[in-house]
Nucleic acid binder design. Structure first.
Lengths: 222, 222, 222, 222
DNA sequence: GATGAATGAGTGTTCATTCAT
DNA sequence: AATGAATGAACACTCATTCAT
């Protein structure tokens, strides 16, 4: 089996460039906002010169859009598949879903994208629409499926899906906003543990949603 | 007791200036962010010239700080007093508290301050600290009192106060962020009603917190 | 008769600004071309800062267009009127016209506009079209009238008007190009006197155009 | 006499490179001016990469000088020889000279060099001096010889040589400027035919210069 | 006090030039 | 020799801030 000639060091760098720039840009846009971030800073953080950035992205705004597009791209497919395959109770499913959201998004740099979009939405309405379409809407759909499934099985009491979904979205978005704003600025003794909060929050919500809320944190025995 | 002569119209305008500028600045900072807002726009929106703004605020940053300070100033005293005087159940108290928060803050332009601070916290850590000290901390304290009271009376089951408080804060902050970011950019059919969401959310949380969650939306009969 | 309050020194400066900037811009654009002229230079030459220039002209390109528009504006009306009132021979009229062109355009800074337009036409086709419409076309028309008049009176032999007109335009444009390019770069001994050239050229052309070319430089005796 | 082995195709291309680059550069400099032309465009038009251009020319300015030098190089020798060999009348000689100028220069891409130099002279005074020395001065000398010859033979009336020469140069330079600026921007109905103009112009000038201007367009019969 | 003309430091963007491959 | 990725100096344009009126 013939191997392709190994890409030169330069080639490797070239291919990595856009990614490095996008990482740097995401971090800085999240930290300082779009307007307050200088492209030179982004370039410096990616280890290149200002000019190089413009080799890959035609303008600061295009860089911004690329950051959003790349960070968001197709993140929800995995969950939809997992949902289809999931075999436990709806409560377990919810719990699993939020935990894995934290592991795959909340904990990672990608979490910043939400803060960024919330902060800049009004300056970039197309971006907001894109986020709605690519993240909120599919996420909403996914959560609805979970809740509907729980209601159909009698596990959950009847819920207003439209609103209940936002009860699940709210703590996630709150967590991201908090993490990327207040948490960065407060001393250690004012912090709280995101995972503990998530657990506590799921617990509370499940108690509120289950038809038989006696033992919401454990799977009901057969 | 001699009364002061009534201030002339001009006098009145002059005294109103800072307030008009602060209103304009709040609206624009919330809409576009600090960096992307031009002082000239603020001045124009307040109906004065650029120079005049600098007569009242020595710099754009000082204007920003004044906006935060003025919008926030001592908003929580009222609630603390109401809490002391409240005579209903803790569930009712919570319900009342969140509703009145919506009426007095959430619905008003002051609601923007939270989005603003979340967005700019990392650029202005002192502002974040100020907000923590003036809003979060007292709000946290107030909510703890409510929850503690409910627990003491046996109305609520035992809760981890530290985390439970954030379960109440989360939907509020989510609501503000959403309102000032996504909601502005989405078409009518993608919107949801904030008050309905609040109601539904309180319902859910109360079911989760009450010791006897049978009738969470109504005060338990004697 | 009440006089208007005299404009303040500042007011006076403000009103003079655009004109000063246009003068400076014309000179520099003619000298270095559009692309090679820095707006800061233009501003400096007009005695203001870079920012001030942008107070009056939204962009470098707009400045360029304004230069062309202002320098050209309605220069030919005067000649048309003089032509109507002229009482001498056509030869005298031609001679007078070219001399006064030199006095009013050729000798003045406005002469640079032609060099500028010839040099930049292909980068600014609208400008070229504007020049054609505002200068070439009316000038062409004016010259045709003169030649036609001479032919009608029998003073000139039959001419192909279309081409003959360019025989008059050619030395003018040549003179302007030469003056603003080569002449500036050559030592004194390589120069020639524009007025002497004009005289000699008119002489030559008149000899070529007159029906009785015996005494082209003097009005034919009765 | 042994012949060198024929250069390979690659070799030929390699040797042709500078020429292809010079052609591309001439065309673009003429079209857009020196400052507004990007070296990358020149390279692209010549079918090579940006880096390659700098292999042949150490800088953009050197490229410019090479363009001028190569385009101009020794164009006048031929005419001087033809002049020495010419056997017809001076009028015929002039007519022949201007026609062949049009064929060999005016019609060809080399014609652009004059527009280029006129436009850029003040940014590159050495270039202007070079052009004066290599083109104007020899051309001037050549034309003087023609006119002097005509005066010596009694064919032309006495002329101020210094000025009369520019009467011949003027229409040529005008034609080049026009062709490379206005003509490119104007619609078909505003154009004129260069050769027809040249004919008409020569006719006019000869009538003005000949001692016996009766039949300037035809050689006087013996 | 109020204005808005003026400033100049700062930033996004371009492009001639270099150099590792 | 040829490439094209990378650079950074240069430049158009913005905008917070000043200050003469």
């Amino acid at each position: 089996m013939p191997t392709l000639p190994p890409p030169s060091a330069r080639q490797r760098r070239k291919e990595a460039r856009p990614g490095e720039l996008l990482d740097a840009a995401l971090a800085l846009f999240v930290e300082k906002g779009f307007a307050a971030t200088r492209v030179e800073e982004v370039a410096a953080r990616a280890g290149v010169s200002k000019g190089t950035l413009f080799l890959y992205f035609p303008s600061k705004e295009d860089l911004f859009k690329a950051v959003v597009r790349e960070t968001i791209a197709g993140r929800l497919d995995e969950w939809n598949q997992e949902l289809d395959a999931f075999e436990g109770s709806s409560a377990e499913l919810l719990r699993y879903g939020l935990h894995s959201w934290w592991e795959r998004i909340g904990m990672t740099p990608a979490s910043g994208i939400t803060k960024l979009i919330m902060s800049e939405a009004r300056n970039f309405p197309e971006i907001a629409a894109f986020y709605e379409q690519e993240v909120i809407e599919p996420g909403d759909h996914l959560l609805r499926r979970v809740l509907q499934h729980g209601m159909d099985s009698g596990e959950f009491r009847p819920l207003n899906l439209e609103l209940a979904v936002y009860s699940l979205i709210a703590p996630m978005i709150f967590l991201l906003m908090w993490k990327h704003s207040m948490a960065v600025c407060l001393p250690a003794d004012k912090q709280f543990d995101p995972k503990a909060f998530l657990d506590s929050q799921i617990d509370l919500l499940l108690r509120g949603m289950l038809a038989t809320p006696d033992a919401p944190t454990e799977r009901t025995a057969p």
